[in-house]
Design a protein around this nucleic acid. Structure first.
Lengths: 236, 236
DNA sequence: TTCGACGCTTGACATTTATCAATTATAGGG
DNA sequence: CCCTATAATTGATAAATGTCAAGCGTCGAA
């Protein structure tokens, strides 16, 4: 069941930095070939190793990027609206390095990779926007690597909580918004160890009740976590 | 002691995919502002957190990219001639996420970041080349993350040896060409553990004598390492 | 040639992390 | 509202990895 992109959705997509500089004609051309699809939860949208047919844009819901090897699996990232994923594979016309599945009921726009590459070739503004997007994506992964190699799992967890608190506007209390087993995988640990880490971190003023987190002593937590924008700022 | 870029060096730089599509005038403009410098071993060229003043091109020697946090340090990559590094920071005009130091006597070309950004803004061909380069860099880091999260240190070592063997043309014998402690750090382990891993891996037909490696049973090693181009191919 | 610095290796031990098994909580479908 | 599937937790144990200390080897400078 595939349908066309509505004007409202097109406007949302257009608001992305990636597309905002594109002139009307080219943007319309992109949207003409694109279509929207609603997916139920836990549908695998793409599988690593496949070649890139579509650039994906998450309009609502959320999508998990994950990777597998030798029977093991790990969460690489979660994509929230409104954002694109697998841009690099689309541009390079290379096989996906990650798989993607919906986490909840999600609305996804599929833009044919060919169209993206075609406009990329003739429209310098778009090419520059793609550079910005890729440079950001690259820097985010580098930070992730530093996080994994330089910190213990407890330190990663502490910094994750600080990040979440700041991302929500500096609040002391927030909902996880992600299953703990997926958070564990994202942070590079097992669910069992996340459970134990949640207790180990209590002395630093972290209270977890179900999926709700309250930071009662952010100063102490920061002192332990030692966050730095060279690792923990997803932009910058 | 800084000097201008020789014609020969300019030709080498030009042969990089990143610059090959650039027209003569713009390339000449880039080289006019650039200069070459010879560095002794173990000189820190850039430090993470600094803002990006130059795009660096390694002409000879080799450069280690590394990152630090809280007194710990890890090797992120080594750059061999002829290649650029810190392109993403240059383009984004953002602080370096990694530090860089020469590993041996090295010849480095420094291209002012401003010049790179200026040409990037007016020259679509160059913008597209930058996209290709960044997409590659991004995919390489994603593979590295998969390597770290999905494999044990012994598996990473095994795959590293297979990669090195293939990169040298499918040979069974090669020199490490990197200090073991740096290899250990790159692979995400301590030097002590690398020493032990080198013995653990012997049953799979790996003989290490000093810095020389001989693979006597590549089939068996591959069976253990389970390499895949979705992790181990630095391109593709 | 000798000396000293430093990288590498080894052993003993500590810590971190994973695995396995069992139990408890939780959320969605009938 | 209950039932059931599945997530989360907990304890016991194992495996992987790191730390510390000592000794060995190698290479370059005096």
């Amino acid at each position: 069941m595939t349908i066309r992109v509505t004007d409202e959705e097109a406007a949302e997509i257009r608001s992305l930095e990636l597309f905002s500089g594109l002139d009307d004609a080219h943007f319309a051309a992109l949207m003409r070939g694109a279509y929207v699809q609603n997916f139920p939860p836990l549908i695998e949208l793409i599988s690593e190793g496949e070649t890139s047919d579509f650039l994906h844009v998450v309009i609502s819901g959320s999508v998990e990027l994950f990777a597998s090897w030798n029977g093991r699996e790990t969460t690489m990232a979660t994509v929230e609206p409104v954002a694109t994923f697998i841009l690099a594979a689309t541009i390079r016309n290379a096989p996906y390095l990650m798989s993607a599945r919906t986490l909840e009921k999600s609305r996804i726009v599929l833009v044919p990779s060919e169209d993206v590459r075609a406009i990329f070739d003739v429209e310098p503004t778009f090419a520059r926007a793609v550079v910005g997007e890729l440079a950001n994506a690259y820097r985010r992964v580098v930070k992730n690597t530093k996080n994994l190699k330089l910190r213990t799992s407890l330190e990663r967890l502490a910094n994750y909580f600080i990040y979440r608190s700041e991302a929500a506007g500096g609040v002391a209390s927030f909902d996880l918004g992600i299953e703990k087993r997926r958070l564990a995988s994202y942070l590079g640990m097992t669910p069992e160890n996340l459970s134990r880490a949640l207790r180990q971190i209590q002395p630093y003023g972290v209270e977890v009740e179900g999926s709700h987190v309250t930071l009662t002593n952010i100063d102490e937590l920061r002192q332990f976590a030692k966050p730095t924008h060279l690792i923990d700022d997803p932009f910058g």
